[in-house]
Every structure is written in structure tokens, then in C-alpha cells.
């Protein structure tokens, strides 16, 4: 089924706001791609062309940008993209064990999507949560830190039930009151 992608009036108003932040017409392409990806779930070629048309940019330029940045989904992904960090600190603290556990659990390999279209797994580069390893990010959104197999089970069960994990605020250890474990 051919799908046509369009921006709504509200999207276009938002795009105008984005454009106002930059002095030229090329610069808004990244935030507008983000907006498009949030709306459509991906930025496949048809969406890239929509972005190019909307911003009056060459389609090739938009394609070049999409393919450069790993967070843009140039092709459709699962509803939940599990980006498991495996770079150094996570590697040291069991990132690959978590990755393989998720792979086995979902029956797919990193880079693949489950048949039901619910999950994709990616082994990704450092997400900047090195102290909270192993960890993963879900669909470019929330970070899940200090992963254990049990925690992964809970998260995946939750996602299956449509529950996105909540943002975990991790205070600096030196701020924690040793008795209450709270800041102050």
C-alpha cells in the first residue's frame, strides 16, 4: 500500500518556529527530520522527500544527512527500538551479556526487527551513561540504566503492555545523604 506523507497545519506551524531559529534554509533540516521521525516513526525516502520539499532543499542533501546520523531511521524500525550500549564502559560491565540476553529473549539479532514489528535491537555506540552501565535507550527516548536480566524482563514485559519505563534521575553520589539516600 502506497502511503503518502504530509505535514499537518500544526506541524507546518512548528516548522516555521524551527526555521526562525536559524539564519538560512539548510540549517533547520535536522530538527525537521526529528519532527518528521516523531510523527511518522521513521524517515524513509518518502519522508525525506517531504522534508526536502517543505524546506526547499535538494532531496540528495536530506538523504546525505539522514544516512550520516545513526538516530534517523532511514527505514522502518520496530515500535520499540532497543539501543543497547556496548561501548567500553558498558562492555566492561556486561553490556554484551545484556545485548545477547535480549537477542535470545526476542529471538532476533542486533540489527533485526521482530516479526510482529514490536521490537528492534541495535548494538549502539556510547550513549553517555558510562557510570550506569550496562544500559540501553528505548526508541531514541528514555534511558534504562543498571540493567540486569531481571530488569530487562520487566522492561520488555512493560513495553509489550504499552508501558514505557520512566526516566531515572541518578543523582551525584556525593550529594546523597547517606542515611536517606536523597539529595541534601
Amino acid at each position: 500500500m502506497e502511503m503518502t506523507y504530509e505535514f499537518s497545519k500544526e506541524d507546518l506551524a512548528e516548522i516555521e518556529k524551527i526555521k526562525a531559529k536559524y539564519p538560512d534554509k539548510k540549517s533547520p533540516v535536522m530538527p525537521v527530520l526529528w519532527l518528521a521521525q516523531e510523527k511518522f516513526g521513521h524517515v524513509e525516502p518518502e519522508v525525506q522527500q517531504l522534508v526536502a520539499r517543505t524546506l526547499d532543499l535538494p532531496a540528495a542533501h536530506v538523504y546525505g544527512v539522514v544516512s550520516f546520523y545513526t538516530q534517523y531511521y532511514g527505514k522502518k524500525m520496530g515500535k520499540y527500538v532497543l539501543d543497547v550500549c556496548t561501548t567500553t564502559s558498558c562492555q566492561l560491565c556486561g553490556g554484551y551479556e545484556i545485548l545477547h540476553y535480549i537477542e535470545d529473549k526476542l529471538g532476533i539479532k542486533a540489527g533485526e526487527t521482530t516479526k510482529d514489528g514490536l521490537f528492534s535491537i541495535q548494538s549502539v555506540e556510547c550513549l553517555g551513561a558510562c557510570g550506569y552501565a550496562p544500559m540501553m535507550q528505548i526508541t531514541n527516548g528514555v534511558y534504562c540504566n543498571h540493567l540486569t536480566k531481571e530488569k530487562v524482563d520487566t522492561i520488555i514485559d512493560g513495553l509489550r503492555a504499552g508501558r514505557m519505563p520512566e526516566f531515572e534521575s541518578i543523582p551525584m553520589p556525593q550529594h546523597l545523604d547517606e542515611s536517606t539516600n536523597k539529595i541534601g
Binding site: 535538494p58 532531496a59 540528495a60 538523504y63
Partner: peptide, 22 residues
């Protein structure tokens, strides 16, 4: 000035391409 070509991807996967469908 047709801007029809771009480099796609990154690192040693880079190569020139046109936008899909063009």
C-alpha cells in the same frame, strides 16, 4: 548546481548517491 549528488553513510561505508527515487 543541480545538487543531485550527495555522499551517503559514514566512514568507510561512504559513497556518492542520488536521493532514492531520483
Amino acid at each position: 548546481k543541480t545538487h543531485q549528488l550527495t555522499i551517503i553513510s559514514r566512514g568507510d561505508k561512504n559513497y556518492p548517491a542520488v536521493a532514492p527515487g531520483t
